[in-house]
């Protein structure tokens, strides 16, 4: 027996079994996520936006056109528009301030000394923001369903469920994108602005970028078409028109493929955020 080898082996810290390590990671991520969720319901952003959405919707719902009291689609469109705007604001502002706030308040150092790894911190922040946006979205959609159902006397629960889940997964991409922005960019305000502009831009012209590209000269055409394939198509998750005009539910396999598309892009942005955060000097 070689005594040197023996000494080295005993000097190592005992390694945790893989299952315990995974459980530890999960606990850390969930603990961080829990703090983010608590933060959301302590802040006033959500309540203000929810009350505003409810007020505008109910006010517009009280208007009667040509003595027809069962006109509802304009109200559904308005309410969904407000929900989309509010959810984007809540998600982006919540995600953008997470890591910079930890740095500013000097709570990042004790957090990373727990031990919580940088990856776990980013994952926890993402999960917290995503779940927080999901909770707010649930309340918004319950309100929407109640208003639409009261006026329309129809309850297409499956359609609403599909729309809400697609919306939530879209917010997952936005959340991951914002976290990446908050690590790379200097201040939360710039992250908020840039991510909001990019998100709204994709929602407005993402679907048409290929048509725009085809009208351009080379090499700009290839660049724009390339961008069309690279960009996350957030507009895919915007099924408001299907809901407003009472179209049939989306086929489940296609719906699931849409969710998989969102998970892929969220994972890409999250990996980039983890990578950028690992290389970032936090002091």
């Amino acid at each position: 027996m070689n005594p040197t080898t023996h000494t080295i082996e005993t000097a190592r810290l005992p390694e945790l079994p893989a299952r315990e390590e995974r459980a530890g990671t999960l606990n850390n991520v969930l603990a961080i996520a829990g703090v983010v969720i608590k933060e959301m319901y302590r802040r006033k952003d959500f309540y203000v936006l929810f009350v505003l959405t409810a007020l505008v919707t109910l006010l517009m719902g009280s208007v009667t056109f040509f003595n027809q009291d069962n006109i509802v689609r304009y109200l559904k469109e308005l309410c969904l528009f407000l929900i989309w705007a509010a959810s984007l604001v809540i998600t982006i502002t919540t995600a953008a301030r997470q890591i910079p706030a930890e740095r500013e308040q000097r709570t990042l150092f004790p957090l990373l000394a727990k031990p919580v790894t940088r990856n776990q911190l980013v994952l926890g922040k993402f999960l917290g923001c995503w779940l927080a946006s999901g909770i707010s979205l649930l309340l918004f959609y319950v309100f929407f369903g109640a208003v639409a159902g009261a006026k329309e006397h129809q309850w297409p629960i499956v359609n609403y469920f599909q729309a809400a889940v697609l919306h939530w997964f879209m917010l997952g991409i936005v959340c991951a994108m914002t976290l990446l922005g908050s690590v790379v960019l200097a201040a939360p305000s710039s992250t908020n602005t840039i991510v909001l502009v990019v998100t709204v831009g994709i929602l407005l012209i993402g679907r048409h970028l290929n048509k725009v590209a085809l009208k351009l000269e080379e090499p700009v055409q290839s660049i724009v078409y390339g961008l069309y394939f690279v960009l996350p198509h957030l507009e895919i998750f915007d099924v408001r028109d299907l809901i407003v005009h009472n179209w049939s539910a989306i086929r489940w396999d296609i719906w699931a493929a849409g969710l998989a598309y969102a998970v892929t892009y969220s994972a890409i942005f999250l990996s980039l955020a983890c990578l950028a955060f690992r290389r970032k000097a936090i002091n």
Binding site: L166, R207, N210, K211, L214, Y228, F229, H233, E235, I236, F237, D238, V239, D241, L242, H245, W247, I250, R251, I254, A257, G258
Partner: peptide
Amino acid sequence: PHDWIDAFSRNFFP
């Protein structure tokens, strides 16, 4: 549809 994204996205709007 011009491409697969275009074809896929047509399931999500009228």
